[in-house]
């Protein structure tokens, strides 16, 4: 969104592995994958295959869990985010995240959306403008515009989730990670979020974790299939769903496990 469109991938994962310090288990095993501009990549795979862990490595959320050790590189516009002189706070401002269940804060709708801007000490005028824009982009504006000062906790689950998307968008990240953002929502709310994602992918690189193959089919243009911590296969959504190369992928998308 901000600045000129970059050449090459926005985010590039290079031989990434994650090991649990406690059990010595390899949660992610040697994953390499690029995320080009204007893409929505769905990360699919059976439960426990490492999808959540994978997206959390993409903005250094993994280090909030002390028991995980990350090796390999994740490059954002060519900069390895795991280098020691990189500030994780800045990483997370460029690479936002939305969680499985809505994580609104106990404050007003407006203050929730303004959260990331307030901590950047933006001017009030700028915050007003950016919050409105973010709420519009998240597809929530029409529902909340008359009561921006109402408590965010009073919103429905689907509205809360779109508010979380707005909060992430307000700081204008270039990448947005979504970890099963609709798994706690009903079909109507899910559809609203899917529409939001389709609009957003024009200017934000989206990485969507989902256990739902049909959701991947509806919104993504690329699918990455993880299994037991390995990247089994990645390709365009059409190819992956209609002509998977790997038998494991085929089994998964035809619903034989997962």
């Amino acid at each position: 969104m901000s600045g000129a469109a970059p050449e090459g991938p926005v985010l590039s994962v290079d031989h990434l592995s994650v090991v649990s310090r406690d059990s010595k288990k390899k949660i992610l095993n040697d994953i390499s994958l690029d995320f080009p501009p204007r893409s929505l990549t769905a990360v699919v795979g059976p439960s426990g295959c490492g999808k959540t862990t994978f997206v959390r490595t993409l903005n250094r959320m993994t280090e909030l869990t002390h028991s995980l050790r990350v090796s390999g590189a994740v490059r954002y516009l060519g900069q390895d985010i795991y280098q020691s002189n990189v500030n994780p706070v800045l990483v997370r401002r460029r690479i936002g995240m939305v969680f499985q269940r809505p994580t609104v804060f106990p404050m007003s709708v407006f203050e929730n959306a303004a959260f990331g801007l307030r901590i950047l000490h933006e001017s009030d005028a700028e915050i007003d403008r950016a919050v409105t824009e973010a709420l519009v982009r998240a597809g929530l504006w029409d529902e909340v515009k008359t009561d921006l000062n109402g408590s965010a906790l009073a919103l429905s689950g689907g509205q809360q989730q779109r508010l979380c998307i707005a909060r992430a968008l307000a700081v204008k990240p270039r990448v947005l990670l979504l970890d099963e953002p609709t798994s706690a929502l009903d079909p109507a709310a899910t559809q609203r979020i899917e529409q939001t994602m389709l609009r957003l992918k024009e200017d934000v690189v989206l990485v969507l974790v989902t256990h739902n193959v049909s959701q991947a089919a509806r919104v993504s243009d690329r699918v990455a299939f993880l299994h037991s911590g390995r990247l089994v296969e990645v390709g365009s959504t059409a190819d992956m769903l209609e002509r998977p190369k790997d038998p494991l992928t085929e089994q998964f998308i035809t619903g034989r496990f997962g």
Binding site: M61, R93, M97, F99, F105, P106, I119, R167, A168
Partner: peptide
Amino acid sequence: PIREAALGSGARPYQYILKVGTP
């Protein structure tokens, strides 16, 4: 997740504590 969402929005830990944790 509330804590992670705040830190994931680019808050420093003390900002999370003041603005989200304390309320």
